[in-house]
Simulated assay, not measured.
Amino acid sequence: MDIRLGGLETPQVAALLEEHLEDMRRFSPPESVHALDLDRLRAPDLTFWSLWAGEEVLGCVALRELDPEHGELKSMRTSAAHRRRGVGAALLDHVVAAARGRGYARLSLETGPTVEFAPARTMYAAYGFAPCGPFGPYVHDEFSVFMTLPLEP
């Protein structure tokens, strides 16, 4: 597995992100879908990585800087064909290391509360993410679960 900076220009990543957006729209009401499309992932406050095996994209993740001490995990996705094979863990290890390298005091995320998001919430909790209140641009929403991970210097 090879984690690469970028990949947004490839058709493989575009297809993976479209799959991600379709799922988010299926499991959440429109006002509660916080997933980013290709254009929004190109914002200057975001860093995007994709994970590859040869010419096949297995997953992706982005890191948004909310402020100099706080990062947000965005667009974490493992392709359906590669779930439960360590792709999510590899991406999460990478983005947590990047957040620590930037000197963030914490890394936060928003995910869904329904059963479809349970595997993600379980993985985040295993990494030490704990429930928290809304952060950054978010407000309380019954279709959102907010989690944060304190990062050691």
Score class of each variant (00 low, 15 high):
T111A: 08
M1Y: 10
R4N: 08
D23P: 00
A99P: 04
M76F: 07
R85L: 13
R100Y: 01
C132M: 09
V115K: 13
A53V: 02
L38Q: 11
W49D: 04
S144W: 00
L91R: 06
L66S: 07
A90Y: 00
L109I: 08
A125W: 10
M76A: 08
D23A: 13
A81D: 13
E31H: 14
R85K: 14
F117D: 12
D45H: 14
G71L: 08
S32F: 05
G71Q: 01
H34I: 12
G7Q: 01
V139H: 15
P153Q: 11
P131S: 06
A14K: 07
L149W: 06
R121P: 09
F27P: 00
V95P: 01
G7Y: 04
A130G: 05
L66G: 14
G128C: 05
T122S: 13
L5T: 11
S50E: 01
M24A: 13
V13I: 13
V115D: 15
P119T: 02
H70I: 03
R85C: 06
R40G: 11
D39E: 15
A99Y: 12
P150G: 01
A126G: 08
L73R: 05
T78R: 02
A62H: 08
R64H: 11
E22K: 14
D93K: 09
H34F: 14
G86F: 06
L51F: 05
L149V: 07
S32Y: 05
E9L: 07
H82M: 11
F129P: 01
R64F: 01
R84L: 07
E31Y: 13
L58Y: 03
R64T: 10
H70Q: 14
P153C: 03
P150S: 03
Y138T: 07
L91F: 05
D2S: 12
T111V: 09
E152M: 11
A35H: 09
M24E: 10
R42D: 00
S108T: 15
R85V: 05
Y104F: 15
S28D: 12
L107Q: 02
H34G: 02
A35P: 04
L58W: 03
P134V: 08
D39I: 05
A80N: 11
F129A: 04
M1A: 15
F129T: 09
A130E: 13
P113K: 10
G6A: 04
P44C: 05
Y104G: 01
W52C: 07
M24C: 12
R77A: 03
C132P: 07
F117L: 04
E22R: 15
F129L: 10
Y124P: 03
